[in-house]
Simulated assay, not measured.
Amino acid sequence: MAEITWIKLKTDMFDSTKIRLIEKLPEGDTILVIWIKLLTAAGKANSNGYIMLTENIPMNVEEMSVVFDRPLNTVRLALEAFKRYGMVDVEDGELVRIANWEKHQNIDGMEKIREQNRLRKQKERERKKALAAPKNDIVEPCHVTVTTNHATEVEEDIEVDKELKRSTAAITKASPPVNIITFFQENIRFNLSPFETETIIHWENEYPYELIIEAMKRTAMANVTTLRYTEGILIDWQKKRLTTLAEIQRDDEAFNQKKGGKRYETNTRGVQTNSGNRGSEHDDFSL
């Protein structure tokens, strides 16, 4: 099962009529705890809202009682209440699925992360396979008379061998791109809210990958941890129609020549500022 560590809960969930009705049931508080446990189990399974014991085995009510550490009769009462109020769907008698699962998880975003992880693992397997592949035998020169056709075949074999070596070298040097969420967590701030995670995922549809990483690097260099700081840098580049690192470097150089200082520095308070004279043009994205 995919490693998804968060779900979305609305702050006004206890204002819901369904939740208020559940609270009035016998053991209503326990039933609400079971609801939260169902949501987290569905998020952990990351199987489109289904409650799964393993990747291929759905969790039945008896197993829920054990996993959730709640009495079996209470779990059954909870599921009946959830079905009545349209909070879960039960298929084939025991296959439980959270209704309207997209309200609790960014399905498109999670699918994108799942695909990124799959491609990364695939590239890593290819790299290891290339490194472990036996080297082709080297064609040794020999003092024999050969026909033109045989010589051509030997030359072709040598070219194939060279091409294989070039391909192996390329695979070895190529490293899979860093997941932008992981990069942000490892270099700026680990704890991200669901909204912040969605925002970062949205960036991939708005900005080039290398610009997102560069903006995060500049945020980390400035010792700033706000997401809007990074987004401010990206928006600034977008307004200037800068789409490559080379264009950004030229823009930095032009700015430095104009202002007489370096564009990105870190002051004693750990906030990125612009050196030189500050006029109407500046790049202070701090909040």
Rank of each mutant, 00 (worst) to 15 (best):
T226R: 14
R263V: 09
P58T: 10
E206P: 03
G276Y: 08
L72D: 11
I201N: 14
D15C: 01
I201C: 05
A246V: 10
R127K: 13
I248C: 02
L9R: 15
R263P: 01
P71W: 11
V271P: 02
V66H: 09
I31F: 00
V88L: 03
C142Y: 11
I212Y: 07
A133W: 14
E140R: 15
A132W: 11
V178M: 04
R70Y: 02
E62Q: 11
S275T: 10
D284P: 00
A169P: 06
K173V: 05
K121M: 10
A45Y: 06
E281A: 08
L38M: 11
W101T: 01
I36N: 07
I235T: 15
E91D: 00
A45E: 15
K44Y: 06
N48A: 04
E156V: 02
T230N: 05
N223Y: 09
W203M: 01
I36M: 03
P134F: 04
S65I: 05
D69M: 10
R250N: 13
D137C: 00
V96P: 06
R166E: 11
P26G: 02
T152L: 12
L192Q: 02
R218Y: 07
T5Y: 12
N277T: 12
N256S: 12
K128Y: 04
L77Q: 11
R84M: 05
G232Y: 06
Y85C: 01
T266K: 11
E23F: 00
Q185H: 03
H282L: 06
